[in-house]
Design a protein around this nucleic acid. Sequence first.
DNA 1: ATAGTCACCTGAGCGC
DNA 2: TGCGCTCAGGTGACTA
Length: 269
Amino acid sequence: MPELPEVETTRRGIEPWIVGREITGWSLRQPRLRWPVVFPERLRGERIVRVLRRAKYLLLETTSGALIVHLGMSGSLRLMPLDSVAGRHDHVDIQFDHERVLRLTDPRRFGSIHYCEGDWRTHWLIKDLGVEPLGPEFNGGFLWRVAKGRRVAVKQLLMDARVVVGVGNIYANESLFLAGIRPRLAAGRIGLLRCTALAGAVRDVLERAILVGGTTLRDFVGGTGAPGHFRPSLNVYGRADQPCYQCGTQLKGIRIGQRATVYCPKCQR
DNA sequence: ATAGTCACCTGAGCGC
DNA sequence: TGCGCTCAGGTGACTA
């Protein structure tokens, strides 16, 4: 599932192919994604200036605006040969002034594409997002301040995009394991020291995942079509009832806010 | 303001 | 072989 490392992997994969290129056309085979996909006619002839990432959104900045792409849960964005046959879940192609098309494949159709004219930072999907977990403002002090007085489970706070972005279920589980914190613990009851450990763990797990191209559980592939290799590094995610690698205790599987949660009852307090 | 729940969508995996 | 069920999950929208 595309979380931040997968989106970043995609960004790095497609960037060299499309920067400086002109959008010459598109095919919308299935415009019914999370929100209806509408490409204005004026997009034709726009040139890609930069490819950025904000949270789990990819920003394809053009001369006068940006395409805002979200991969949802099952989406991938890849460069394909112009003549490659589109499959059942290949919903959108964007054509450039070369022999490749940028293709959005998304079986579950939770992804989205918007064209935003002008500054994408003011777009309604982007403007209320929290801090970047790899940015300088995300640290123990920040976590401690936003957690103050909150009774919500720390795992839910970590996954709240208005607080910090890009931490989905996999990496939330893994970060809490690394920091030795129980997922269900009320966020406001965690001290500054442990908040610092947690912020560090989030950063660490995300950075390591980016280095190996993200986590491929089923069908994620990066911009160049390669799967990610972080899966063997997972300590708890998907391992309920199996022994903890660190102490051998049986890992516990619970649900927090409808989300599968796994932790070690001995290593995490 | 905060917390909890639901909907959207499809494919995989399972029991029968 | 196939049916029906459950699960997975990001996130906006809704309710209490």
